[in-house]
């Protein structure tokens, strides 16, 4: 899995391309923690190229959400693909991690 980020006007967009599994989950957590500390506490994780996520990956996203909120910000997810959407729904975490159509939309309401 490859991570990158880009600072936008009011948030930082993190891309996580590949499989978000037990191997990459701790790395996402570390990467996002660094972005929160160094760039923005408002994070959009763009999952457009995240073809797969398991419960470890989901746990990492929840950890990142908590880290962003503890820093006074928030974390939102965008461009969710079908497998990731399925995992979010089956675990009822779609209510906690609201998915937006695109990274641009994620913080457009505030």
């Amino acid at each position: 899995m490859e991570f990158s980020y880009e600072v936008k006007d009011s948030y930082a967009e993190v891309k996580a391309d590949g499989r978000l599994n037990m191997v990459s989950a701790p790395k996402l957590r570390e990467f996002v923690t660094d972005v929160i500390a160094g760039a923005s506490n408002r994070i959009v994780v763009n999952l457009e190229n995240t073809a797969f996520m398991d419960s470890s990956g989901l746990g990492a996203l929840i950890g990142c959400l908590k880290a962003a909120r503890q820093a006074g910000g928030d974390l939102r997810i965008a461009a969710v693909q079908p497998q990731v959407k399925m995992v979010l729904q089956l675990t009822s975490m779609d209510k906690v991690l609201t998915a937006y159509g695109s990274a641009e939309e994620a913080f457009s309401d505030d």
């Binding site: 398991d54 419960s55 470890s56 989901l58 746990g59 990492a60 929840i62 950890g63 908590k66 995992v87 089956l90 675990t91 009822s92 975490m93 209510k95 906690v96």
Partner: peptide, 16 residues
């Protein structure tokens, strides 16, 4: 709990 970072694997397997 909804903010737990682990413990969902077995339930997920059963749902799948």
């Amino acid at each position: 709990d909804e903010d737990a970072e682990s413990g969902r694997g077995l339930a997920l397997i059963q749902a799948l």
